[in-house]
Design a protein around this nucleic acid. Sequence first.
DNA 1: CGACTGCTTGATGTCTCTCAAGGCTAGTGG
DNA 2: CCACTAGCCTTGAGAGACATCAAGCAGTCG
Lengths: 234, 234
Amino acid sequence: MTSLAACLNCSVRNRSFCGTLDAADLATLGGLGRRQKLSQGDAVLWAGQDADICGNVLHGALELIATTSDGRAQNVGALYPGDFIGHPYADAAAFTVTAITESEICTFPRAPFERLLARDAKLERQLLVQTLATLDATRARILTLTRRTAAEKVAGFLLEIAERGETVRSKPSPTGPLTFDLPLNRGQIADVLGLTIETVSRQLTKLKAAGIIALPGVRAVTIRQEAALKAIAG
Amino acid sequence: MTSLAACLNCSVRNRSFCGTLDAADLATLGGLGRRQKLSQGDAVLWAGQDADICGNVLHGALELIATTSDGRAQNVGALYPGDFIGHPYADAAAFTVTAITESEICTFPRAPFERLLARDAKLERQLLVQTLATLDATRARILTLTRRTAAEKVAGFLLEIAERGETVRSKPSPTGPLTFDLPLNRGQIADVLGLTIETVSRQLTKLKAAGIIALPGVRAVTIRQEAALKAIAG
DNA sequence: CGACTGCTTGATGTCTCTCAAGGCTAGTGG
DNA sequence: CCACTAGCCTTGAGAGACATCAAGCAGTCG
């Protein structure tokens, strides 16, 4: 159970569909919510199984995984703080949802959440608005995945993580080199970008050799020439 | 202006978000709707410009086009009968929407449509349900585009068009060979599948050589071995 | 008939995957 | 403190799939 105070102070309040609710509505929703910590690898929903919860990502990152008929698993999207988890009005989840990193989420049991949506048009409206935005973002991702080379994908990925700024280690000056940790290992990056581990590794090595980035640790990245990286990302 | 009778007899009534409305609600919505025929290449919305209309595809096919920073255009999705066009609550359209084939759509001016959504919770609910379904389908498309070979893509595309059954020419018996016309030319197919024209052509030739399909005309396709085609599609 | 458009086919190149081996790092236990 | 192991990462060689470049073919329309 999440208290009203917890909702009001929620870190994703201004990014999530619950952000525009007034205190009364928020209290109702908060009454359903349950905060839950996830370790890396923990699953929240399973493709094909009953999608019994909905929720919000508070911090960390989760991924959507589709499984092909021949058993291969493939990442089809990532969920970051403020993103909505689950599928109201659907009996079965379309994708498996797993924590990529340690994460915290706020979940609602699906049935009462649907009843609340039915009663509260404003909430449903916000969820619609957010879903439409997610749809646009997903379509934009198709552009990235189909017509970009490995170099473009990796460069774009580094910029994306850098901009999110959740794992920044140092940024000596506004124009100075930015150092941060990658929240994903090579295999996970490969999965997100639709590449193989080896190709990701080679592209990073190439960027390092060109002096555009430095790799002070396995997970750490320093962007030395942001303009060059942006040029490669396209 | 669309009459209530026209709405009740609408070919996509059971597939679109307006399908569950009762006569009264349908009359209100119909009062806003305007049927519109499109020739191939006609645009309905332009990326970055004011998204002043919403609507439904009645028949034909439209495509969503994203434009990269360097000016290349890329298909990021297709819209078929029953699919929703546009983006309520957004000022600008994220993608350009263009007719791939001759099409007919039913459009609503965005502002009054939004007011109607706000008044009619049932309508908004249906739009949310449909948008969530589209989001799932779009994510599934990511799987297709990233981890499938050209052969899998083309085979899957043929099955998809065949199942839609809009351009069926003949189907002598439930198990007999199905012949239909492709609604898209080779270039458009290539764009949708993230391939080149040549690769699409080669894959079709290969399927024909294997006896799995026949190509009685440039646009016509006969599926001779559906099971084999499904096996290739995966 | 000639030009045009869309499709097919061939030759070649390149990017990324696959397979394989080895290196680095952290943690474990002697 | 030093082997030892396991997991992750890097690097190399080779293969395969698809793109690119380049003709050539088949309808169609003036």
